[in-house]
Structure formats: C-alpha cells, structure tokens
C-alpha cells in the first residue's frame, strides 16, 4: 500500500492550527505529482516476469508489488520512463497522456 494523496487536506486557518515552530507530522501528501507527466508507463502483464527491477529503480516508488500483478500509482508517477527503459522484458511502454495504449 502506497501513501495516499490527502485530497481533503484541511489547511491551517487559525494560528493554533499552524505548525508549532517548525514541527509537524511526517508524511503528509497534499498535492499529487501526476500533472508533471507527459507519458505514462503501462505494464503489459503478459510479458512481466516480476523481476522487480522497475520496482527497485523507480525513483518515486510508485510501482506496487503487493497485488498479483504489479501496480502503478498514477497520482505520484512523474513519467520519467526509467521503468520502461530498464525492463528486460520490454513489458512496459510509455504512452502519451490522453491516448490509449
């Protein structure tokens, strides 16, 4: 399970709600990174052998390995393309956003 984008984050609206000094809780995601992407990775599961190189190399850790098939968290994938480039089975293709694979 990847950390989730908190879509209904309550921004501080009073002094008491502001972080004290510069101390707040670790791990609070309030904006996604999906808007950065031009191409998105799409996995062809029939070719995937679960070598997990994509999972390992992904800077953003968006590839999940808890399901039967690998998953991609598109909220936080920036579309760098490392996964597709490194896949030894060429099971991942980079597809332009807005287009179907």
């Amino acid at each position: 399970m990847k950390p989730r984008w908190i879509k209904d984050f309550h921004y501080p609206s009073r002094p008491e709600e502001l972080a004290f000094g510069a101390c707040t809780e670790a791990g609070v995601l309030i904006t996604p990174n999906s808007g950065w992407r031009v191409f998105r990775p799409v996995i062809d599961h029939s070719r995937c052998v679960r070598c997990l190189l994509c999972w390992t190399y992904c800077p953003d850790g968006v590839i999940g390995k808890e399901e039967k098939e690998l998953t991609i968290d598109y909220d936080y994938c920036k579309g760098c393309g490392i996964c597709a480039h490194e896949c030894p089975k060429r099971a991942i293709s980079m597809v332009k956003e807005g287009k179907r694979p």
Binding site: M1, K2, P3, W5, G27, L29, T31, P32, N33, W36, R50, C51, L52, L53, W55, T56, P59, D60, G61, G64, K65, E66, Y76, K78, G79, C80, G81, I82
Partner: peptide, 19 residues
Amino acid sequence: FKNLSDRELMYGQKTCPGC
C-alpha cells in the same frame, strides 16, 4: 527485491523526474 517492503518511507517528493 521480493523480500523488501513495499511500504515507501519517502513518497510524493517533488524531485525532478528520473532523479
């Protein structure tokens, strides 16, 4: 790799793509 945790301890950061 199979035995490593799927849990991410760094996530959603604004580093450049491919960092």
